[in-house]
Amino acid sequence: MDILIIGSGPAGISAALYAKRAGADVTVISRGSGALAKAERIENYYGLAEPVSGAELEANGIAGAKRLGVKFVEGEVVGLAMNDDFTGLVVQTAKEKLEAGAVILAAGSTRLAPKIPGLKEMEGKGVSYCAICDAFFYRGKVAAVLGEGEYALHEAEILLPHASKVMLFTNGKEPTIAIPDSIEVHKEKVSAVEAATENGTERVSGVMTEDGTFTPVNGLFVALGIAGSVDLARKIGAAVDNNRIVTDAEMATNVPGLYAAGDCNGGLLQVVKAAYEGAVAGLAAAKYVRKR
């Protein structure tokens, strides 16, 4: 396929409209509603004689794109990578791998990681955000994943062939999917990520849970809830600054063929800006795949 768009909010749908009308073959993958569906009434967007609910605006957007022939796939994206010969991008969902010439990241804004003591401080010293990048360091070691859904399971499965043991800390939540027996599940709330200093270098030593248990682990991969735009950007090496994706005026990231639009780019978190950025990204991505 030519262009795969992650997210069916105003950014993703605007991108789809412009890319489709520019002649590209366009597919949108989404797990459902985003921020817009939470807005009760929108009355600051162009052309609304009467306020509409965010949910209605979102549904109308999707219907309009379908009318133009944009394809839709339902699914939760858990990974993003280059293909083997670096000619395209691969979007991984819980069920399948989809390859496209260009990808537009329009998955909305990313929640900040929870304030667990040690999480921020130990980043890069055992706390990691990308199993595919850093699994290598856990050969024969104990690796843990913080999370409870498809995304966490995906990260844990990447770690399994490397680590001697893989654990899942759900931080007080019930897992939303079945976890295989090969992964040890801990459901207590996490109170701290503990560190120890060895030969002058500080490293993660374990996870402390609210029941007072200390579980020794060598590292912790953060994969809470659903993979957000920034999580996906990190895996493919798209530059991120202050929890927002860095793009140029054409909404291109530093990764060839990867564009980003909407709330994930920061700035004004409004429909009008998401729609504008989506339009620009859609046109730029269509031009990119034409030139390939």
Partner: peptide, 10 residues
Amino acid sequence: QQFGIMMIPT
């Protein structure tokens, strides 16, 4: 490992 590298790039 002597530099405590557990993430790349660092």
